[in-house]
């Protein structure tokens, strides 16, 4: 199984490590041709404004949108922002990949002073994660809630797209990545 990690900016290595620990081959994605022959894709944490600029600079937007339309994808933090159809606090010229019909809000918890570690609740398990200048999901619309924190939705799935406000990759938590891999398996 070959899973790409969008490697323009952000915590690419942490995602790579978790994918590899689950037995997947992790491939860095920097050009259009890197997206060929991948079974899934992770869009990592980082600065969503910088990543979206770089997507534009390297002319990846169309190819990414086509990939996200059909293949399993996981986005964390900045990745959730980039996958959201609607984002509050988006820069005027910030282009999103979209595909996930939710409304999210950038840096909704505030500055770094409001970043924190916490345990999130999945349907059948809990895991420690980190919220770093994290976004919030304002409206999950038709997406299924995968995880909550203090009763609020913090991870969702809609068809082939999974996304979380937090970083499981920083604490080494693997549940979301294993859900991505299950999603990939179910299609093979």
């Amino acid at each position: 199984m070959r899973v790409g990690v969008l490697a323009l900016q952000g915590d690419v290595r942490e995602h790579q490590r978790i994918l590899e620990s689950l037995g997947a081959e992790a491939v860095w994605v920097r050009r259009k041709e890197d997206l060929k022959n991948l079974d899934g894709l992770v869009i990592p944490g980082g600065e969503s404004t910088a990543i979206s600029k770089l997507i534009g600079i390297f002319d990846l937007m169309q190819t990414l949108r086509e990939f996200v339309a059909t293949k399993p994808v996981l986005g964390t933090c900045a990745g959730l922002i980039l996958l959201s159809d609607q984002v509050e606090g988006r820069l005027d010229d910030q282009e999103l990949i979209g595909g996930l019909d939710i409304v999210s809000s950038r840096n909704a918890y505030g500055s770094q002073a409001n970043s924190f570690e916490a345990t999130v609740q999945y349907e059948d398990t809990t895991e420690p994660v980190a919220f770093i200048r994290a976004p919030k999901i304002l409206d999950t619309k038709s997406a299924k809630v995968l995880a909550t924190y203090q009763g609020q939705p913090v991870a969702v799935q809609q068809n082939n797209i999974l996304a979380a406000c937090y970083h499981p990759e920083i604490t080494g938590s693997t549940h979301l990545h294993s859900l991505l891999i299950t999603e990939i398996d179910s299609r093979q």
Binding site: Q9, G10, N114, E117, A118, Q121
Partner: peptide, 21 residues
């Protein structure tokens, strides 16, 4: 749902997000 801010992981975590930038 205990919440812990300003841990070493939270502090270095932001820098991890800046990598490649």
């Amino acid at each position: 749902t205990e919440k812990t801010s300003a841990t070493p992981l939270v502090k270095s975590g932001l820098a991890e997000m800046l990598k490649g930038g």
